[in-house]
Design a protein around this nucleic acid. Structure first.
Lengths: 353, 353
DNA sequence: TTGTATGCGTTATCAT
DNA sequence: ATGATAACGCATACAA
């Protein structure tokens, strides 16, 4: 048999006060004398009382919940960001609700629900582009918004410059003498409009153009995100009559597939093929993979803090916050004593952007 | 300015009916005539009405929310499970709330909150051991429970037999002629009581004992989960006067670290050192890593389905569901034409358990 | 089949 | 400083 819920009324009776006083104690209002406060707190402890968020939310007209909208929770980069978000939210007193979206319809369904102030006070969106209308609706409904890895007009967002990141990778490879540079990136099958892979490619083009060269369409392969498909695309590239001498992968996960392809094809890295990724996941340092590092966890922390900031009524000082990218040149682009899996001297050319 | 919320009352007025009728339509009660139903639905559409989960929950005495308790969201294995859970929950009509726990105090805080029927109708716990008292409390409060990768008396749970998995790995290595087998696993710093690493070690011991041998404590290293620390532990093992000829890592992530260590130390895999992992993450197939495969995503799907089953009032047919483990013998234990990173013949000895 | 009225557990507005 | 009471939006027992 389920025990009866102990309500604010029970506490009030036990403490010999009115419900309003108990409510004041709960919300730490200053307008209550120390003695009664103590009595109430004792009663709360005694009865093992827990306030109902439901009732509180209904009464206040909004729920003390923060929703987090994420795509493809399988991707390590998304998970790292989410981790940062949770870290902050967890000690904030707000509950965290997770909404995973993998398709347009799912996105719209979730967004429509989240517009409701009864659902959450604030929403954190990770890597999912929002339309002007979406943002306007949130605003109209009084639901705060904080964006991570995606931009939005007049909405606090924390991003990196993917295009600059791509250029960084390109410059690095060009500086090493590479002229035929392949690219392996994402094809956006979901229709959600992920742009980071494309932006990184554009950055690569920037780098090439600045050296009087241009992007070779033949050396570009786009496909579903993942190491396995990346390997297949790299195989494809390496089978070309005039294959690339370097490959820039839009993520470390994909770079792993490229690495795998190189070895399967008997190519030495970085001599026969140079490889650079993006993200700087743990696996990158393990495999001595050159990469463009971006602060994933920090982006989550930052995004969550900015939402909390708004909820406290403070203005976010810097609506658009750009996090730094950093080139980590390791053994898959730079020859060292021991090769890409070795422990040789690991040069970290940190190019701060 | 925030627009006024449209409530069930507005809909009732617009449709010229009572609120109860609207409520019946919303909850698809059969006790409403087709014509009025149509009128009400039209009004709902017209006004863009969305029922408030808050109010509904308060009225019903419980929220249509399902909480998911997860540890270390960074681990790919946990993420895969969570992915499965979300996949199912997402099309169930319930909301999904995520609670991440990394410490004992965090676990207790979250559990205490989740006991509340106002917080959620059901709770899914991933990989976190629950005490008898915890389980009893959930039951007393009428909150349904479903466990994944952790056991519980009389509570539906889906698990694998980690000990058998360890034995499987052990038998495989022993069968290949290895006698000095090292183990690299997790040290449970959190105090939460994760046991899978330990169970896998016990399984390895079972295998050794069945061959008249015993576990060599000298060859065991436990440390914080991660590829980097695993590499360090492997380095340590390989520096031994009489180093192991094979290493069983408690997870693929850790096996990656071992692989890295082997190459850094100039050891050929699998000739100088055989390596086997656990989980069969995507990275395992990419790197041709031998491993004990467990159905991670499926465990999430199964766990979520079992909770939904209970919520529909049906009994879960099989309280303890054991998922199958499978040995994938690949190039890090079995010599092939191209070695661990190659694409040679990939034998998959599937030992169903 | 449909409408009325009450309760769910809080917060907030009044009084006192 | 404190207490009584009206919302909050919905579900449901009861009445019609």
């Amino acid at each position: 048999m389920e025990r009866q819920r102990v309500s604010i009324f029970d506490v009030a009776r036990a403490a010999g006060v009115g419900v309003a006083t108990v409510s004041r104690v709960l919300n730490s209002s200053p307008r209550v004398s120390p003695t009664t406060r103590a009595r109430v707190e004792a009663a709360i402890e005694e009865l093992g009382y827990h306030p109902s968020r439901l009732a509180s939310g209904l009464s206040k007209g909004r729920q003390d919940m923060i929703a987090v909208l994420v795509p493809f929770i399988t991707r390590p980069s998304v998970v790292s960001r989410l981790e940062g978000v949770i870290e902050v939210l967890d000690k904030s007193g707000y509950g965290t609700t997770l909404y995973s979206v993998a398709s347009l319809s799912q996105r719209d369904r979730h967004l429509e629900y989240l517009m409701d102030r009864h659902a959450s006070v604030g929403v954190i969106v990770i890597s999912i582009p929002l339309s002007r209308e979406h943002i306007a609706s949130f605003r109209a409904n009084g639901v705060q918004l904080s964006l991570i890895d995606t931009a939005g007009e007049d909405v606090p967002h924390v991003v990196v410059d993917d295009r600059v990141g791509g250029a960084l990778a390109g410059m690095h490879l060009i500086g090493l003498g590479h002229r035929r540079i392949g690219f392996i990136g994402d094809e956006d099958l979901s229709g959600l409009g992920f742009a980071s892979s494309y932006k990184r490619l554009t950055g690569l083009e920037d780098a090439l153009v600045s050296f009087g060269r241009s992007l070779d369409r033949e050396l570009i392969r786009l496909g579903p995100h993942g190491a396995t498909t990346a390997k297949e695309m790299a195989d494809d590239l390496l089978r070309l009559g005039n294959p690339p001498t370097a490959i820039f992968a839009a993520s470390d996960t994909q770079a792993l597939g490229v690495l795998r392809s190189a070895q399967a094809n008997g190519l030495k890295v970085p001599d026969d093929l140079a490889v650079i990724g993006f993200d700087n996941l743990e696996v990158a340092s393990i495999f001595n993979l050159s990469t463009i590092a971006q602060p994933l966890f920090e982006s989550g922390v930052e995004g969550a803090q900015r939402l909390l900031c708004q909820l406290e009524g403070r203005e976010v000082e810097q609506v658009k916050k750009v996090l730094r990218l950093e080139l980590h040149a390791r053994a898959t682009t730079i020859r060292s004593a021991v090769g890409p899996m070795g422990t040789g001297l690991q040069r970290q050319l940190s190019a701060y952007v």
